[in-house]
Design a binder for these strands. Structure first.
Length: 513
RNA sequence: CCUGCUGUAGCUCAGCUGGUAGAGCGCCUGACUGUGGAUCAGGAGGCCUCCGGUUCGAACCCGGACGGUGGGACCA
């Protein structure tokens, strides 16, 4: 056996962990302020409850980690009752289980499950389904074929969703929430923008060009989704005959005719740089044609702009981007995406862009997969790991967590005294630990404290005990001074202090304040 | 899955046209001192990713496998 971790997964150090926890607590606060309550669901679900992806053997399939349950369970019929054979014996099966690949699919399951009985009794009717608002965070899993840096097979998201509300105001709120949350987390107003578009517009526009086929529409949407990565002319080629990639690869085109390509490219080309919401709306008004669905989508954007403007969310925070479509097929209305506008230099000095950190939209069809009844839903999600990278790489957050106060172990005989001190510090709300390591040289203990980024070390040996004092060493200050002072004695004098035993807690507090 | 580059100490990398290994950082021991950093003196650590081939001889050349990395396809 060789100790190693599974490919595509990672361990998290205290620094990263702390940043992620802060993101979660700040975002949660904002979500709560809009009326969302916290729910959690298991990481493991029946594969068929997560959506349409059913693995047909016990291997990993289509980006989802799946396996067969070791447990035999009854097969259920569409009425929810056990399926039985002619002899009246229940069919048993090892069901397919999947690790959740996002938090939206489990939400749909929770909602559908709660409603299932009522639905069977016809006590819920379409268009009148109850409203449910929840937020949720936790790890999700994807079987990425290619494991790339900054992209893992397990990562965390923090979602909020509203189910059962059709009002486009909920979509507008989603954008405001994203903006508020990002700022609460510490992003400055200039460093990000929430982009908004509406699928209905594009859908309707394509329909007016004669594209009715849903599969065809999805193909086109996937190409348009690359708009932020490739140039307009490259995009044009992908819609048509395909193109050759710089690295030599051949990309197959969709083979559309130029009568179709031209109007699509024209529409996208009209919105290269984001301007004001009002001007985007005005341009769309002229370009979008008179398809009913497209008009409906545009009307929704007008409505969204109305609230945003009324509440003072300027273009720098939330803007319209008609080229935004997002890859997911299940979106049916407004879609949003928050992008970080910052870049940073990686370890090799190479400039890196950060890109998308949040995404979401309206998905009115998702619950229908499980319940057979259309229920409107909308929501969005912040990518916690990606955002943590932003905070670390732009230097806005420290990559190393602050450690506890370390009580140095001089002498076993003094253990009870150390314990008493530890207790006092903890009662005062100060994290601390006593050194229990095997190598007890003072040098080792302080070096341990240094690595753990401890702010303070407390030293009590026989000398201190006899005098009724403790030596308090300010490690954080020492770290600062280490570059400017080379004299050991001077360094020591400036960094540590003997205080009377009774003043210990107060003194430590004053250092850490 | 396709494609370019790459694989040498814990990490970052040197290693000329084939002659069986080097630096910096880190780590360990000690000195200054019951005291992190700095400084100084020592030390440990490598089947040169793996398997096969060419050769008297391979870290180096050739083939393959497997990792890493940069593009791309895919991403419900």
């Amino acid at each position: 056996m060789i100790p190693r971790k599974v490919r595509g997964f990672r361990d998290q150090d205290p620094g990263l962990s702390q940043i992620k926890q802060r993101i979660i607590s700040k975002a949660s606060e904002v979500y709560r302020s809009y009326g969302f309550e916290h729910w959690d669901t298991p990481v493991l679900e029946y594969a068929d409850c997560l959506g349409k992806y059913l693995p047909d053997d016990d291997t990993v399939d289509k980006g989802v980690f799946s396996f067969k349950s070791p447990e035999l369970e009854p097969v259920l019929g569409t009425d929810g009752k056990d399926l039985k054979d002619d002899a009246g014996k229940t069919y048993m099966e090892n069901h397919h289980l999947s690790l959740r690949y996002d938090l939206t699919a489990p939400l749909a399951r929770v909602y559908a499950e709660k409603l299932w009985m009522d639905f069977m009794r016809k006590q819920v009717v379409e268009g009148k389904a109850p409203m449910f608002k929840r937020f949720q965070y936790g790890p999700v899993f994807r079987y990425e074929i290619k494991v790339e840096p900054g992209r893992y097979r397990q990562f965390e998201q923090i979602d909020f969703d509203t189910v059962g509300a059709e009002d486009v105001m909920t979509d507008a709120e989603s954008c405001m929430i994203l903006s508020d949350a990002l700022e609460a987390i510490g992003l400055s107003r200039e460093s990000y923008v929430v982009k908004v578009n509406n699928r209905k517009m594009l859908s309707g526009y394509l329909r007016s060009l004669g594209i009715e086929d849903l599969a065809r529409e999805m193909e086109i949407i996937r190409v348009i989704d690359k708009a932020d990565k490739i140039s307009l002319s490259e995009l044009e080629m992908e819609l048509g005959a395909g193109r050759k990639e710089k690295s030599g690869g051949q990309i197959k085109g969709l083979g559309l005719s130029s009568e179709l390509i031209n109007p699509i490219v024209e529409l996208l080309g009209a919105f290269g740089d984001l301007s004001t919401r009002a001007s985007v709306l005005a341009d769309l008004d002229k370009l979008i044609g008179d398809d009913a669905l497209a008009r409906e989508g545009l009307a929704e954007l007008y409505r969204i702009d109305e609230v945003l403007s009324r509440l003072g969310f300027e273009e720098s925070r939330i803007n319209f981007d008609p080229t935004l479509v997002r890859g997911l097929g299940y979106y049916t209305g407004p879609v949003f995406e928050a992008v970080s506008l910052e870049s940073y230099k990686d370890a090799k000095g190479k400039k890196r862009k950060i890109g998308s950190i949040c995404g979401g939209g309206r998905y009115d069809g998702l619950v229908a997969n499980l319940l057979g009844m259309k229920v409107p839903a909308t929501g969005a999600s912040i990518g916690i790991d990606r955002l943590a990278d932003v905070l670390i790489n732009t230097g806005r957050d420290m990559a190393q967590a602050v450690g506890p106060v370390l009580i140095v172990m001089f002498d076993d005989q003094l253990m009870m005294e150390y314990q008493v001190i530890a207790r006092e510090l903890r009662s005062a709300g100060i994290a601390c630990e006593i050194f229990y390591g095997a190598r007890k040289q003072l040098k080792k203990q302080l070096s341990y404290a240094d690595k753990k980024n401890c702010p303070v070390a407390i030293l009590i040996g026989e000398d201190e005990l006899a005098k009724g004092v403790v030596t308090v060493r300010n490690l954080a200050l020492g770290k600062e001074l280490s570059s400017s002072i080379s004299d050991k004695q001077e360094w020591k004098q400036r960094v540590q202090k003997e205080v009377v035993r009774e003043d210990l807690v107060a003194h430590v507090k004053s250092i850490m304040a």
